[in-house]
């Protein structure tokens, strides 16, 4: 098994687990959004890694290379990153409205989950 693939799958599993732990245990809303953003990065890395072919080059046509990686996940992730930042900005604006109404960011309700 290729070393680069192993390293990036290990990173994906760790980032998703860290994000899940943060979403489950934290009570600060800003911290929950930071955890969700970390999970977003992990999911993008997972899609790119699934499309990787050992020994392939980037999908730009060149006469010197014969083997290319799968271009379709790259096209999907390219747009997903840009959508991610705009959705994060919308969520943070809702958070600013919440803070101006309640004066705190901590969730003080009963059961979290």
């Amino acid at each position: 098994m290729n070393g680069v693939i192993m390293a990036s799958y290990f990173t994906v599993a760790s980032l998703l687990s860290i994000g899940l732990y943060g979403v489950m245990t934290k009570r600060n809303l800003m911290k929950i959004f930071i955890s969700l953003s970390i999970m977003d990065t992990g999911v993008n890395l997972m899609l790119i890694t699934i499309g990787y072919l050992p020994g392939g080059t980037a999908p730009i046509e060149n006469a010197n290379f014969a083997k290319y990686v799968d271009p379709l996940p790259q096209a999907l992730v390219l747009t997903a990153i840009v959508i991610g930042v705009s959705v994060t900005a919308l969520a943070l604006v809702l958070l600013i409205k919440y803070h101006s109404k309640k004066g705190t960011l901590e969730y003080k309700g009963g059961m979290k989950w």
């Binding site: 680069v4 390293a7 990036s8 990173t11 993008n44 890395l45 790119i48 890694t49 990787y52 392939g56 080059t57 980037a58 999908p59 990686v69 790259q74 992730v77 390219l78 990153i81």
Partner: peptide, 11 residues
Amino acid sequence: IMFLLLQAPDV
């Protein structure tokens, strides 16, 4: 940087 190692320069 890991994206660059996985041959995805656009991303």
